[in-house]
Design a protein around this nucleic acid. Sequence first.
DNA 1: GACATATGAATGAACG
DNA 2: CGTTCATTCATATGTC
Lengths: 184, 184
Amino acid sequence: MDEGMSGFLMRSGSVRGKSGSTASSATGTKCGRWNPTTEQVKLLTELFRSGLRTPSTDQIQKISTQLSFYGKIESKNVFYWFQNHKARERQKRRKVSFDDKDVVIRRQNSFNTSSQSLADMYRVSEPDRVIETLQLFPINSFGESEPENLRLHGNECRDSSTMFSCTMDEEIEHPPLELRLSFL
Amino acid sequence: MDEGMSGFLMRSGSVRGKSGSTASSATGTKCGRWNPTTEQVKLLTELFRSGLRTPSTDQIQKISTQLSFYGKIESKNVFYWFQNHKARERQKRRKVSFDDKDVVIRRQNSFNTSSQSLADMYRVSEPDRVIETLQLFPINSFGESEPENLRLHGNECRDSSTMFSCTMDEEIEHPPLELRLSFL
DNA sequence: GACATATGAATGAACG
DNA sequence: CGTTCATTCATATGTC
């Protein structure tokens, strides 16, 4: 249905049909909001899957530059993408964890040590391994209660020297993506 | 399992018509997407009317659990429901407000049975009153809150010449009616 | 059955 | 980083 596009607030004459396939900027040159192409999403996802979670400014810059080949994109888009993707992965996991009908405790510890080269491309300083502690229980369930002393407020906890890393058991069933990124 | 859509990105591709597995109704049990039963909707609406707008993760869990009695439901459904309901109410109100000269529609409410105790059940920390801080001005300033040196050009012209806030006509101060739900 | 609307789901952007 | 808002996509439902 039509929105409140009756006058103001319509900062951009966005085209309704977004399903413009893989047309990079086909969705309108004057986009009000970044609309990633399938290639871009594919690449970002691959990077994420490779373990990249919080790309540095430099990494973001590089990624953005490369992705611009597939369509209009800005650095902040990349930044936001990773922020959102990471946040939602957690959020989703949390929301699903408790209403899971079939209480199946399955820790999938088998994973392929396949090429992580993709993430390596953008690596500049830190290994940025996936050091996520699987949240079986919501830590911060109640409105308040933010135990500052328990918060691992580490800005530098990226070292993760001895932290054991566990991969997400999410369904990362991805096709044998022949990603190469030779331009890097 | 009740799989379905959980998939991340299935957009972009103009894949019209994703198999004609158009399933049945609420009782059909084969849903690509959650189809709330009338009881579920009624309860959710009642909660919303009671003042609940953005339930916490914890509340969502409880609500979901209780609603599961009436049919298949997941936490994320509850989450999305409130998200959408709130957004659309706001959207509707916004649409009406700007050229509100004679609009008599004003929406009607078919509810006469109010309950505050209902919302109380799920209340955990604060009286989630409809205290919504309308954004009158875009706090979108330049070179501000740059995450990690990232330069986010907030060139987004979030023209917020929007309307001013209008207090909810929906009353949240219902009399302490005794509406008890059996399962609670 | 096409069309219009209601609504579940997703996600880009941004706030605190 | 967790949450929230806005917008859009996709599908269910209702009407003719």
